[in-house]
Design a protein around this nucleic acid. Structure first.
Lengths: 118, 118, 118, 118
DNA sequence: GTGGTCTAGACCACC
DNA sequence: GTGGTCTAGACCACC
């Protein structure tokens, strides 16, 4: 995982895990990597991962099982709702940026097809 | 202008000006607002604007006229190239995030049309 | 038994047993549950119960019969004295907190009657 | 301020500030001490105070003015509601403990009057 | 091994 | 000076 230098690392990691939950790479109820393990994997300090997991917990995506670790919440409707909201907001924000640079939706969609190789 | 609290303000302002340049809201060769004036307009400290203009200069979008202020560069090809690159990268990054949450390009395009009210 | 997550579990269990001794639910000289048994009952690891019994012994409430287990001490005066001290200190601490939030003793007593349904 | 060793320091500080807000010692909208200043005053690490203020923010008691500091929220009804809830819960918990040691409400009230010197 | 708390200290962003 | 982020490292509670 590469980190950009224009946003706090803990947000970048949290956002990535959030997407992995929405995408099913982390399943409902699944145990997340331990704080120390994920810190090692990503090459960041464990305290940063503590911050990441606090952030995800405050977003309602994971819960702490005090003794055994951190888990994706099991409430499918909740996750689904948050995912829809994520898609909506991210898309609106993207469209807003694209329109600000004077690219039409049609041009944008051509660009998307071009990137997707269709 | 609204600032998110998960990214440095100077990046948010710089990105916005970058898009305004690509969109033509700031024309080629146009003089940018003075540091003081833009700070007042946006309600941020002049030092932050200094940082913004430094950033934009390092991106090759503006130049300093030592005596009279900051100007959008006049090289149309350069700006056009940077704009294409911005569109390409911003779109790739967005598509990458969307695919990570397991939304297909077709679903995404439906979402875009829905938002655009078409 | 519910555990709060803002205090170590072993303190919460120790405090509860301390009160049960003062209240007579554990009689003077009575044998306490085995470490294993209490751990099972409360759903915590036996090591935690070891810690609980150490704590209660250091408070002078129980003693270890090396061969046969843990017992509530039999000295009635001592237990009675500790109980009085507990009541005194717990009440002072509570009153101190209540007064800090600007609630008078009269208001507090009304609240107590309200809760007690009198 | 004295810290007990049976609860995390950051909770003890947060609870104390919570009570000072309810009691009016910190008025609605008032600026709280800076992180560094409060750390110095209490003899704890600034990072601990960061944690304290995060906790109070999550309780809805304070807000961050990103540039200038931390402030008690100004919503009087909200604070009043939280204060009532605090009184209710703390009192119920206290009564529960007292009854567990087999002290009647009448005895308790005598004790309260005795402590209050009435 | 798992998470939680705390310290010490560095550096950044914003005013 | 104000808060925010991150690292390094220690020690505790619980399993």
């Amino acid at each position: 995982m590469y980190f950009k230098n224009n946003r706090p690392v803990f947000y970048q990691i949290a956002d990535d895990i959030e997407r992995k939950i929405y995408g099913g790479e982390y399943a409902l109820g699944q145990k997340l990597p331990s704080i120390r393990e994920l810190g090692l994997t990503l090459g960041v300090n464990p305290n940063t991962i503590v911050h990441v997991y606090d952030e995800l917990e405050s977003r309602g995506l994971i819960r702490t099982e005090s003794t055994s670790g951190k888990y994706v919440v099991s409430d499918e409707k909740k996750i689904e709702g948050l995912k829809r909201k994520y898609l909506e907001e991210r898309t609106r924000e993207f469209l807003s940026d694209i329109k600000e640079i004077n690219i039409s939706v049609d041009e944008l969609i051509l660009k998307i097809y071009e990137i997707e190789g269709k």
